[in-house]
Design a protein around this nucleic acid. Structure first.
Lengths: 171, 171
DNA sequence: TTAGCTGCAAATAGTTTGCAGTTTT
DNA sequence: AAAACTGCAAACTATTTGCAGCTAA
């Protein structure tokens, strides 16, 4: 549950609140105070890959009477516009949101549940090869998810465990 | 909803029912008729990346009185043993199961919801680089998910759409 | 025998939805 | 003024859980 960012440049590729709002406007969506607050909350927590609950909590600070439904609706709208992506992470109860829609990998720690962004040349190679080999037209290139243990947790909990096939998904 | 396999060798890397049962036994789990039936169903539908509902339906054919809870329980056990992985796919209501736990990519079609397996050298490079760059100890190397449109659907629905960043997640 | 498994049914909880009233354009 | 958006509360539904009886070892 701690939200220390483990790796990677802070929000370097993430869209800003302004960009999100611009996308909404460009799509002919209305500019409401609630949406503004939600976009600000997204921007602020971008590096955490926030869940709906976290965004809801953050928005409430400045907008105490907002309803969850509005948060869900707006997030769905942003998702459909393609300016935000959903991260469905195994064994996590909530959906996470990522403002970075450029090709990258997300690495998830099984212990502290932190999520890091990783930008690598290899991602593009992988996608190109996958497209060539499968005949698929790959549309979404962000949010490739890898699971493991972050450096902090390795240190904290003792290391040693082999990173092998057959590694169980849970503790 | 059609389940034609689009790409890749049929179940080449998937574990067989026998292997699943062996894993259960090795872990000191009891050998029940229900678990046997579930493993058989998994093996049979491995190439489909079946959901719980599909496995439940398949098992019922030979075992009409089985309960869903048992299917859920067994799947969870297999998951914890690391012989099966869960695929959490964006916008899919159900969890999919993959009997292939060797490093590979899953490519998901947004239209027909088919899931293909792709084994590529690049996967290992990606994982190695991700581990090196992030300091994470990567434990799960299977089920890297990519989203796009499969060849059949491209043909069927007309092509043309650009595979760009900013591509919406839904229709 | 006995620990573990199954099946039933009820509980849980994240997300979605209907609708009436409000707000943006 | 019209269409869209919000907030509330109810609805949905995939998954989990409690528990009594069954069963593999």
């Amino acid at each position: 549950m701690n939200k220390t960012i483990v790796t990677g440049p802070p929000a370097a590729h993430s869209r800003s609140a302004v960009q999100l709002l611009a996308a909404l406007e460009a799509a002919g969506k209305r500019n409401t105070a609630q949406r503004y607050a939600i976009c600000r909350a997204l921007e602020k927590h971008a590096a955490d890959h926030p869940t709906v609950a976290e965004i809801y909590a953050a928005v409430r600070e400045s907008f105490p009477m907002i309803s969850q439904a509005t948060v869900y609706n707006t997030l769905q709208t942003l998702k459909r516009l393609g300016v935000v992506i959903e991260l469905d992470i195994a064994n996590h109860d909530h959906i996470h949101y990522d403002l970075d829609v450029t090709p990258h990998v997300n690495v998830v720690c099984r212990h502290c549940e932190n999520i890091a962004d990783l930008h690598m040349r290899t991602v593009t190679s992988l996608i190109d090869e996958a497209a060539a080999r499968s005949g698929f037209q790959i549309q979404r290139t962000a949010g490739l998810i890898l699971y493991g243990v972050c450096p902090d947790c390795r240190r904290r909990r003792g290391d040693g465990r082999a990173a092998q096939e057959g590694e169980p998904q849970d503790a």
